[in-house]
Write a protein that binds this DNA or RNA. Structure first.
Lengths: 192, 192
DNA sequence: CCGTCGATGACAGTCACTGACATCGACTCT
DNA sequence: AGAGTCGATGTCAGTGACTGTCATCGACGG
C-alpha cells in the first residue's frame, strides 16, 4: 500500500522542477546554484543530479512527452497523405498540448531565451524531435531525404509558430498560428 | 617591424585549435582536459580560455567566417529575386568555402557528432546563422515571417546537404548536394 | 522480526571556468 | 641609450557543476 507520505515528501522531481523555474526566473539562470534549487525543494544537491542529468535538463522534462505526442500523431495519420501534411498533424497535436499551459510556457520560455546554454539545450531537443519525426516518416515509406527535409521544415514551422504564440497576446491560439506559418512556408518555397 | 619570433611562438590561437581537434579525435572530447590541450600547444590552461570562451568553442572558430560569407552573398543578390532564391545564393557561397577543406571538415564533424554538448553548440551556431540570414532578408524588404521561414528552410537545406557531403565519398560536391536538397525541399512543400 | 530495496544524505574529488596580479619582451618616446 | 607603456602569457586561488562511493532508514515481503 502507498501511504500519503513515507519517509520523504512526495514528488521530489516535481518540487525540483518548480523550485528551479522559480529561481531561474527570480535571479536568472547563471546566478542560481544547484544547491539553492535543492534547498528550496527540501533536498540536497546530490539528489538534484539523480533526477536531472544537469542544471539545464530540469527545464526540459516535458520534451519527451512532446516528442511522443508528435510521433503518435504522425504514426496514426492516413497512409495516403503527403509527408508535410502528415507532419502538420503532429504540429496540431502539439498545439493542443500547450493550450492549457500558456502561463507556464511563457515563464519557461522567458528563462530559456535569457541564456545561451538554455537555448542550446532547447535546440537539441528540437533536433531530437526532428530526428524522431524523420524516422517515423521513413517507417511510413517516405524516402530518407524527403523525410529529413519534411521533418526539418515541420520543426521550423513549430519554432516560429510557438515564438509568435508567446509573443502574441492571449487571443491567438497556437493552432491558428501554426496553420498560418505552415501556409507561409508553402508560399515561400513554391515561388522558386 | 615584426620579427619572426618574439617572446612566444606565433599563432597561439591556431596551435590551440589544432591541438584540441587532435586530442578530441584521439581520446574523445570528454576524455580530454583543457589543461592537456594547452600543454600540447605549449601554453597554459588560462591562456586557452583567453582565446576561446569554453572547451567547445575551440571547434567553431570558422562559424563567424561562414556567417559573413552567407550574409554577404544574400546582401549582394539582385533585389528582384524571391527570398528562397536569395538564400540559395548564400548556400552556394558557403558550399564553395568548403570545397578545399573536406578532410578537415570530416574530422571535425566526426568529433562533433560523437558528443552531445558539441552538437548543441553546432545547433546554436546554425541558429545564429539563420537569425543573421533572416535579418538580412528583412533589410532587403522581405516580410518578417517570410524572412524567418526562408532562413530556417535554407539552414535546414544546408544541414542536410552538408551531412550528405560528409557521408558521401569524394565524388560528390557540396554544391551539387545543396542543389539536390533544395529541389527536394521545393518538392516536399509544394505538394500541399 | 528479519532481510532486501529504493530514495536520499554525506562527503570527497575532478574539472571547467574566472578574477587578480606578476612577468617580460617589444615597442615608443625622448 | 634609458624609461615607461603595452600586450600576451604565466601563476594561483577560488567557485560551482557534476560524479563516485558509502551510509542511512522507512517500506515492504516473507
Amino acid at each position: 500500500m502507498m501511504r500519503a507520505m513515507g519517509r520523504w515528501e512526495p514528488d521530489a522531481r516535481g518540487r525540483l522542477a518548480k523550485a528551479a523555474l522559480e529561481l531561474y526566473g527570480e535571479r536568472g539562470y547563471e546566478q542560481t546554484t544547484v544547491a539553492e534549487i535543492a534547498k528550496r525543494a527540501g533536498l540536497t544537491e546530490r539528489t538534484f543530479f539523480r533526477h536531472y542529468a544537469d542544471k539545464r535538463e530540469v527545464l526540459f522534462a516535458g520534451a519527451v512527452e512532446l516528442e511522443n505526442l508528435f510521433v503518435a500523431a504522425v504514426t496514426d495519420a492516413p497512409g495516403s497523405e503527403a509527408p508535410l501534411d502528415v507532419v502538420a498533424r503532429g504540429l496540431y497535436a502539439a498545439a493542443e498540448m500547450f493550450t492549457d499551459r500558456r502561463e507556464f510556457a511563457c515563464r519557461r520560455q522567458a528563462v530559456i531565451m535569457g541564456n545561451a546554454e538554455l537555448r542550446e539545450r532547447e535546440l537539441i531537443k528540437l533536433a531530437s524531435l526532428s530526428a524522431a519525426l524523420a524516422d517515423t516518416l521513413r517507417r511510413r515509406g517516405v524516402a530518407e531525404s524527403t523525410a529529413s527535409l519534411a521533418a526539418e521544415a515541420g520543426v521550423a514551422v513549430f519554432k516560429i509558430a510557438f515564438e509568435r504564440w508567446i509573443a502574441a497576446g492571449e487571443e491567438r491560439t497556437l493552432a491558428e498560428l501554426t496553420r498560418e506559418s505552415l501556409d507561409e512556408l508553402r508560399a515561400v518555397t513554391s515561388a522558386g
